[in-house]
Design a protein around this nucleic acid. Structure first.
Lengths: 231, 231
DNA sequence: GAGTGGTCTAGACCACGCC
DNA sequence: GCGTGGTCTAGACCACTCC
């Protein structure tokens, strides 16, 4: 006798049958009532299993038309973006932080444009470096709007990075992330211990809250860094 | 009179109250029964709204301990990985494809290692280029295992790329994706119309089914390419 | 019109993990 | 122990959309 069916086991079974070819791409699955009967569960339980398969991009459902296997499954990747500290300790390496420099200044035009601020708006600019086992791992170039986050003027970034300070300080906010490749400029090369011109994987992140830019950061990883995921 | 509460409006309301600071990071939300009472809905409905907030990384729930706002919200980004053709047409550009070369050969060691095949295993190797409005957009270096996908030996990649052929041909499969930065080698530079050594954003994707590698591809984007998302 | 999915209800039992 | 979340049930009504 099979173990009592729950939505997880039903989801797994449906997935296996799709992957096994029982319902080919474009093919139609039985409706909820039929499946509920065959699994011996309530219709709601089948519905939950199928809803998760929709979220996973494997099937499509339309009223009256039924449930079909997607012909081209939605290829989507999901990344977690942890704090650098966690990213490094999860690699099994020791985390170390170093402040390279900090200043209160007017936003240069490219930063102002990126943050949607007037040029010259007051910002706290921080340069710092994150190490994994004493090897440079990530170079951080951070700009914080002092109009939106005035406390950043007095924050001390000597012992821990601005990201950790901001996370504890800021409300939940909207974030825009870009992933790109850049050529190491001389400063990045010096701090990341590589040649100028090396290809670096780079994350740019802009954080806003209620329409106001809070912070913009450019994170340049050491050469060879990869961001990996599965689906 | 407010519209009848459903799980979406409840989710939106909880989100607004979290973002508005009613429950600060680390703070505890009322339990399901209390919320159900205040919204005038069944407990199940509140549970669904909260389950989605958990999925979104905003709250954490533990039995007996209750529901709390995450101190460091799970920063997760979700990308859709469309076919290059769709990626380009959604930019409003015309898509064009060009086959650069194709051969049936033995897998070189680095490819064999990456795909988990014995060195020299038979593979179809395809080089091609995807254009946006006649400007090179993406350079594709594709390897397909002929042991796992024998039909690839006879496929014609003259008019459309191997990705589109594979998507229609292969069953649902497991995929591992890496994002990285590379320096353009001479061939990439020539085809992408840039200098050798330029920093290129690059995707590597390995696809397997039932433990067998089907295909490995390296996609190099033209200089300046960004992958963007919001959350 | 009728079949299918989408959601809600009211209640129940269980699992986990603080106390 | 006992409070909290996790899940399931049986039923209901509605919304959509294909026929």
């Amino acid at each position: 006798m099979p173990p009592p069916a729950n939505f997880r086991s039903i989801k797994a079974d449906l997935l296996a049958r799709i992957q096994g070819g029982e319902w080919p791409p474009g093919g139609r699955l039985p409706d909820e009532i039929a499946l509920a009967g065959s699994y011996g569960v309530a219709r709601t339980t089948v519905a939950r299993a199928m809803r998760e398969l929709v979220d996973d991009g494997l099937i499509e459902r339309r009223r009256r038309a039924g449930t079909r296997v997607r012909t081209a499954p939605v290829r989507q990747a999901r990344f977690e973006i942890p704090l650098v500290r966690d990213e490094i300790t999860e690699l099994g390496a020791a985390y170390r932080y170093q402040l390279l420099g900090s200043a209160i200044t007017g936003a240069p035009t490219w930063v102002a444009a990126r943050m949607g601020l007037p040029a010259g708006a007051p910002v706290r600019h921080v340069l710092c470096l994150h190490f994994a086992d004493d090897a440079p791992y990530q170079f951080e170039d951070r700009w914080v709007s002092l109009d939106s986050v005035p406390d950043a003027a007095r924050a001390d970034f000597e012992t821990s990075g601005p990201n950790e300070w901001l996370v504890s300080k800021l409300p939940f906010s909207n974030v825009e992330i870009d992933f790109l490749a850049i050529m190491a400029d001389p400063a990045q090369a010096r701090h990341l211990d590589c040649d100028a011109g090396a290809a670096l994987f780079c994350i740019e992140r802009r954080t806003e809250w209620e329409g106001r830019s809070l912070t913009f950061v450019r994170l340049a990883y050491r050469p060879g860094h990869r961001m990996t995921t599965r689906y």
